[in-house]
Amino acid sequence: MIFLRTGSNLERVLVGGGFAFTSELGPPKGADPEKIRSKGVLLKDCSDAVNITDNQTAIARLSSIAAGKLLLDMDIEPVIQITCRDRNRLALQSDILGAASLGMKNVLCLTGDHQSFGNHPQARGVFDIDSIQLIRAFKMLRDEEVFMSGDKLRASPPKLFIGGVANPFTDPPGASLLRLEKKIDAGADFIQTQAIFNVHRFAEWMDEVRDRGLDRRTHILAGVSPVKSPRIAARMRDVIPGMDVPDGIVERMEGAQDPLEEGFQISLEIMKELKSIKGVHGMHVMAILWESIVQRLAEEAGMLPRPRV
């Protein structure tokens, strides 16, 4: 019998041994709910759950929890991203209780991009706790029904499927594995990886993950990020920290007659390779500003139809 901690669809797929498929939605710099709903429509039928970013790249946007409520109202299951950059431990715990009360069941815990990268570089970064401590705090809320301070909850706990992230492309490589293990120890039910372009290097990292038995203690979703233009590919290679985009991919994009189609094909090839790597339990597609491509990617990668509960 399968033991489920939450009513999360994502948990049901993963714990049931299925291969998960999730996607991502970036809230707008504004208050128009249609901006969320129009993207939600594109992702609904091809995703087990949809990540909502939390002021990604440290740029102020509509809140991830509010966007999550808009998705719930469309029968789409959100994964709420929560970073430690903008909130201290009181606000992190308060907000997750609020999100759970609205029906949100998945949370992805991140330390967060540093404020200096965003549109308010003068802001004071909070970083009261880090992502590993946040994962543990949410697990304590769920399983032990206590706040970080030890103070007891006085009402039902949040039923959360708790996630974290991992970057296979940092060095020293051992440090990334160390952090992955600590996230699992802290209580990460699932892990989303950084976008993968260098499949070979990712496969080597997964060898280490399996050697340590970590793939049996959590569910690893491999990150995929379709690129629309040679400029974006080069930017990911040269500018964005923590990414490994091989020159071959940038060259393919530069030489393409139809960059959109080439970007699609590159992602599709990567996805097919990722599917066959042992220990990978699903894929997470980050097509920010290109949500319309996700359905076709899921279709051609053989991910459809998604199981419905």
Partner: peptide, 13 residues
């Protein structure tokens, strides 16, 4: 810069 206590963030290169 993030006062991290449990290892490096994913951005160190």
């Amino acid at each position: 810069p993030k006062h991290m206590l449990n290892g490096p963030c994913g951005g160190s290169e």
